[in-house]
């Protein structure tokens, strides 16, 4: 059972209490670590992983109330359930602990049967929360998951400056028809794994997968210092990984795959759209449309990465690009100058 290997931190300034609680916890099959005051407890919580904190209230340096307050205010720590174990006087103090987020309150000396029940319940709750979080992360990016878990789901959006990247596999439909469904899914899974890796390593987040196509955001939901530079670097990395992937494919006589990437930078409306029951985090606006058009235009222009003028300006000459002139895109009032990211500079590896 997973519970058997749970790690419990015991914060108590009294040595007899620490030893006794540690013994009780270990008799229940858990591992324990000790902290002599609130400050040391927080240090340990921040540097090691714990499944539960048994917290005394009366402690020097930082008392249990202050520890509870700091845990509540820290997104990294507030997942750790806290059971207050104290012999503090006054019901109002017990209420204060619960109001500050403690799961439970056990009066010292702690009854072993009660301790077992409370620890079991707290660990089970934590396990369910972890499971729920893992599930959420499977369907949305970890940034969106954190946002959702912290502020709950609310429809609505805000303006953000971001770079949007679209990519898809060239001639994918023909490829699908030439091979079995399992092979297609296998190919797509490998492909997405590589693309997610490239995008994630430059601080981007894959927002949508549409078969062989995907949309990634740089600078949303969390701001990114150089969103345009990161998006272009991720695009180059994607091409580099595809090249390596093609080497492996050619070794087993499979056709090479080619991808096209479009990147645009500018203001987007970012937020949750949908219904209260089912929503999705996305970005909408001209910049998103333009990135999609640029990706489609790679087929016409015969190059792998196309970027808009805003992205090119933001690069500040750090990446060589070639102007392909102004192109009138559908839905855009004015023609947009577009640039090809120079092929010779792709991914910088031989």
């Amino acid at each position: 059972m997973a519970e058997d290997t749970s790690r419990v931190l015991i914060a108590d300034d009294n040595k007899v209490n620490r030893l006794l609680l540690s013994r009780s916890v270990e008799l229940l099959g858990h591992r324990s670590a000790l902290a002599e005051n609130g400050r040391l407890a927080l240090e340990k919580l921040r540097s090691e992983a714990f499944d539960l904190l048994l917290l005394d209230i009366e402690m020097p340096e930082l008392d249990g109330f202050a520890v509870l307050e700091q845990i509540k205010a820290d997104p990294q720590l507030r997942e750790v359930p806290v059971i207050v174990t104290s012999s503090i006087e006054g019901l109002d103090n017990v209420v204060r602990c619960i109001n500050l987020g403690a799961e439970d309150y056990l009066r010292k000396p702690v009854n072993q049967v009660l301790l077992k029940a409370r620890i079991g319940a707290s660990l089970e709750k934590k396990r369910l929360r972890d499971q729920q979080k893992a599930l959420v992360r499977r369907f949305v990016t970890s940034e969106v998951a954190d946002d959702l878990l912290q502020s709950d789901f609310a429809l609505g959006g805000k303006w953000l400056c971001a770079s949007v990247l679209f990519s898809d596999i060239r001639g994918f439909t023909a490829l699908v028809e030439s091979q079995g469904p399992e092979e297609t899914i296998d190919l797509l899974n490998t492909y997405h794994m590589l693309m997610f890796d490239a995008i994630g390593s430059y601080g981007g987040a894959v927002n949508q997968i549409m078969g062989d196509g995907l949309m990634a955001l740089f600078g949303a939901p969390l701001p990114l210092d150089d969103c345009a530079g990161s998006a272009v670097a991720a695009g180059q990395e994607m091409l580099g990984l595809i090249e390596q992937f093609n080497h492996e494919r050619s070794a087993v006589n499979k056709p090479a795959i080619r991808i096209g990437i479009g990147i645009a930078t500018g203001n987007v409306v970012a937020g949750y759209i949908g219904t209260q029951q089912r929503g999705t985090y996305t970005c909408i606006g001209d910049t998103v449309n333009l990135a999609a058009r640029l990706e489609a235009h790679t087929k016409v222009a015969g190059c792998s990465i196309l970027i808009d003028d805003a992205t090119q300006r933001a690069l500040g000459g750090s990446v060589p690009t070639q102007s392909l002139g102004e192109v009138p895109f559908k839905g855009k009032a004015a023609a947009v100058e577009i640039f090809s990211v120079m092929a010779g500079q792709l991914h910088g590896q031989s």
Binding site: D13, N14, V16, N17, L20, E58, P60, S87, I88, K108, P109
Partner: peptide, 13 residues
């Protein structure tokens, strides 16, 4: 108060 509290706690144990 804290020292008295600590002694009380151990006494109870």
């Amino acid at each position: 108060r804290r020292a008295a509290h600590s002694l009380k706690s151990n006494g109870r144990t």
